[in-house]
Amino acid sequence: MSVERRLDVNRHWCKGCRICVAFCPRNVLALDREGKVVVMRPDDCIWCGDCEIRCPDLAITIVKEAAS
């Protein structure tokens, strides 16, 4: 059984500080018009977790799910 991973963003908690966007090594994240983080290029993500551990608002989580 394979495991699927995705970046889960809690828009209600995100304050748009840009820390995750700036420190992402693969330029996966961006801020949208409302100034909240969005996963722009999910396929480029290497699951390093740098966004997750540095988010001051705990708004990003790498979610692991069993693929159906």
Binding site: H12, W13, K15, G16, C17, R18, I19, I53, R54, C55, P56, D57, L58
Partner: peptide, 21 residues
């Protein structure tokens, strides 16, 4: 609910790391 700290405040990162510890 989002916490009270300002956008970009480092204290949130301390909370993040502490929970992981």
């Amino acid at each position: 609910m989002p916490h009270i700290w300002c956008p970009g405040c480092g204290h949130g990162i301390v909370l993040n790391s502490l929970l992981r510890a």
